[in-house]
């Protein structure tokens, strides 16, 4: 009982993204930008300095017709736990401007604390962190459509996906007013999850066996959250970043593309399944 109570207190929000269902439409990217007041440039052609908290990558199996196959892979911040909250980015920030929240498992970014050293960007192998190279400027009329719940960021600091943390705060506020301390699964969902027309993204508490994410990923918390489902994998699992975004695919080449393997390495053997 005591264990169960503790379990409920410490949530671990995460995602499972079904890559077999993702069509690469980019609705998640658009929803994310709108929801989080992500700034954009007049010319967005250079993707190396434009901000996309959620970015969809296109993967190919490198084969020619008829074996050619592609896969779209949406990549938000992985909200890595590392070993006991020692995320790659959190541990390196010199000014404590990014934090691993042990209650929710969310890696936060404190915009007014960040002084733009960019060490966290160097630490993140997923390129989930973005720098504000320019002042955020929106066309005059579109400023009316900015979300009042998310503060815009200033030039010279780093930002990234927050798992729509403001939605968590709003949901918790509502629950508190109603005398509850625990959220229902559907009360806190990220904007990308809701925007996906294919329903490829599932979001919830990985620690809660009642949540769908837990049932899909079957995370093994005793072994750094490794997925128990054979079709589920995490990006760069071998580095020990312990991310909370899981991917699912029935295709082996897609699962293999999630991590680096030596040429002579037996993927199936090393993939633990």
């Amino acid at each position: 009982m005591k264990e169960e109570g503790k379990h409920k207190k410490a949530k671990k929000y995460g995602m499972v993204i079904n890559l077999d269902e993702c069509t690469g439409c980019g609705a998640c990217m658009v929803a994310c930008m709108a929801e989080n007041n992500v700034p954009f440039k007049e010319d967005e052609s250079n993707k190396l300095d434009s901000i996309t908290w959620m970015r969809v990558y296109k993967l190919t199996n490198g084969k020619s017709y008829p074996e050619a196959d592609i896969c779209y892979l949406p990549r938000p911040c992985m909200h890595c736990e590392g070993h006991n909250g020692h995320s790659p980015c959190v541990s390196v920030c010199p000014a404590t401007a990014t934090d691993y929240n042990h209650d929710t498992g969310i890696v936060s970014q404190i915009y007014t604390r960040c002084f733009g050293c960019r060490y966290c960007m160097g630490a993140c192998p997923y390129h989930a962190r973005y720098f504000n190279w320019w002042d955020p400027v929106w066309p005059e009329e579109s400023t009316k459509y900015l979300s009042p719940n998310v503060s815009p960021r200033m030039r010279g600091i780093v930002e990234k996906c927050s798992f729509c943390f403001h939605r968590y705060q709003l949901a918790m506020d509502k629950a508190y007013l109603e005398g509850r301390t625990v959220l229902e699964e559907n009360e806190y969902q990220t904007s990308c999850t809701q925007a996906c027309p294919a329903g490829a993204i599932t979001f919830g508490d990985l620690n809660n066996p009642d949540h769908k994410v837990h049932q899909l990923a079957k995370p093994d918390n005793k072994h750094g959250g490794r997925p128990g489902n054979t079709n589920v994998f995490r990006l760069l699992e071998r580095l020990g970043t312990n991310p909370k975004v899981y991917y699912m695919s029935s295709r082996e080449w897609v699962r293999r593309a999630g991590d680096n393997y030596l040429d002579d390495e037996d993927f199936a053997k090393n993939h633990r399944h």
Partner: peptide, 26 residues
Amino acid sequence: IDVGQPLRSWFIFWHANVHSMLTEVA
């Protein structure tokens, strides 16, 4: 010159994260 917000440079001392190598450097 290298930091994005030079006026906040003092944060590295004031809000020091003692686990960061960069803090030790500073």
